[in-house]
Amino acid sequence: MSEKKKLRVATTSLAGCFGCHMSFLDIDERLLTLLELVEFDRSPITDIKHCGPCDIGLIEGGICNVENVHVLREFRKNCKILIAIGSCAITGGLPAQRNHLDLGSCLTEVYLTEPGLAHGHIPNDPELPLPLDKVHPLHEVVKIDYFIPGCPPSGDAIWKFLTDLIAGKTPELGHGLIKYD
């Protein structure tokens, strides 16, 4: 009897704090149950650097620089279902609180006028991805299929959402699991 093919899952954090990934690990021993159903592609868990064809992509964090856009597009190209996880991916979150400010004046204040940081110049190493003038939620850049709100969503919320989805049901969170904070 052939084993049922596992779903392939990729995860990444863009302009996020990895808090959603930490919360994902908070499903604790249920990870073992999950691993009977899925295998990981690109993810901090595997350290695979690029995303191959996947069933589900989980993305934490919004879009604040050029590299974020490339990674997001790589995920969209490869993942059948793309899920934005956490406040930053869904609303821009904390990084987006710079959106009403001019990016140039933010950088000037942090690196030039405020004492103590760097050495009096705005970092411009070619390896650093260029920041965007505004931080964007994922759905403003590519089509997102599902959203798991929360900062971070609880391990229970992530578990409920993923197990609903894997079972072929429309994921529902309900009171206590749906949180924006």
Partner: peptide, 26 residues
């Protein structure tokens, strides 16, 4: 509406309606 940094989070009617109506994204 950045709920994670809002003092009113958890006591906010707009947020609570979002929860009740299963609004997952704006």
């Amino acid at each position: 509406h950045f709920c994670p940094s809002c003092e009113k989070s958890g006591n906010c009617m707009l947020q609570a309606l979002g929860y009740d109506l299963e609004v997952h994204t704006a």
